[in-house]
Design a protein around this nucleic acid. Structure first.
Length: 273
DNA sequence: CTAAGCGCCTGCATGC
DNA sequence: TGCATGCAGGCGCTTA
């Protein structure tokens, strides 16, 4: 399940291959993704066009084309991009194939939670998909104050605030759990109840956990290009996520699991208060 | 307005 | 062994 570090790793590894290349042909094998793929728009605006840049906003990959159109790709839960030659065996759930010179970029997604949107020239700024997104957590715009301002005007618990992309983007369930552990904060605590010091620790923990994951993602970059054609994620050792009953890496007491608004939440009751 | 609930979708783990 | 059930989760929509 790609979160911000995974999406950014994919962007970094693909960008040099795609920039300046023409997407000669686009094959849509399955258009039933999260929303129907607009095949006619792909043909009209993307096919036969040159890629100017590959960017990222939140967990969206944005293919900027030289005609000022764009493609917005979200990998959902199980989406994968593969950089292959045409000889590569077609794997199940391959939905879209972008043909470039000598290579194919293949989009696979068993669960079809992902999406592929086409944005006509000059309309990216108004694109609905990118509206209402909060700040990038690794940018300078992400401050302790952004976190505290929202939290203090809300009655939600801090964990729900962290996974709300209208506040800060890129954090899914895994990294929200991890960040709260490193900040020593109980996920169920009301956001408005956090102290100044806790907001500062949380802000720092979010950035650190994402940066470290990004560095780990970077190490899979070589694999990506050479051998497998796909990056292998989750090499990172998780502190709390998925570790119910296992010893806390700080104090050794068992990690607890609770459900907060339908999402599994893992924490150490001793280290997080 | 806010916040929670729901559904989408398949693969995998678990239980009888 | 085989089948049913539940869980995973981002995000847009619906509901309270």
């Amino acid at each position: 399940m790609p979160e911000l570090p995974e999406v950014e790793t994919i962007r970094l590894s693909l960008e040099p291959h795609l920039t300046g290349q023409v997407i000669k042909k686009i094959q849509v094998l399955e258009k039933r993704l999260r929303w129907p793929v607009q095949v006619a728009d792909l043909r009209k605006w993307i096919e036969g066009r040159k890629v100017r840049a590959l960017e990222r906003r939140a967990k969206f990959l944005i293919f900027l084309m030289e005609n000022d159109s764009a493609m917005i790709l979200h990998l959902g839960m199980s989406g994968r991009l593969g950089w292959h030659t045409s000889e590569k065996l077609m794997e199940p759930h391959t939905h879209v194939i972008f043909h470039l010179s000598g290579r194919q970029l293949r989009y696979r997604d068993p669960r079809r939670f992902g999406s592929l949107d086409v944005v006509p020239p000059g309309q990216l700024a108004e694109c609905a998909r990118l509206q209402n997104l909060g700040v990038e957590p690794l940018s300078e715009k992400f401050t302790t104050q952004i976190l505290s301002t929202y939290a203090c005007s809300s009655r939600r618990c801090i964990k729900n605030i962290l996974i709300d992309a209208r506040v800060v983007v890129g954090l899914g369930n895994i990294y929200a759990n991890e960040a709260l552990f490193f900040a020593g904060i109980d996920p169920g605590k009301a956001g408005s109840a956090l102290s100044e010091a806790e907001f500062t620790r949380l802000h720092r923990a979010i950035r650190q956990v994402l940066k470290r994951a990004l560095e780990k993602g970077g190490t899979t970059l070589n694999d990506y290009r050479n051998a497998h054609g796909e990056p292998g994620f989750f090499q990172m050792e998780l502190a709390v996520y998925g570790r119910a009953g296992e010893p806390c890496r700080k104090c050794g007491l068992p990690i607890h699991k609770v459900v907060i608004t339908g999402r599994s939440t893992f924490f150490c009751p001793a280290c997080q208060r």
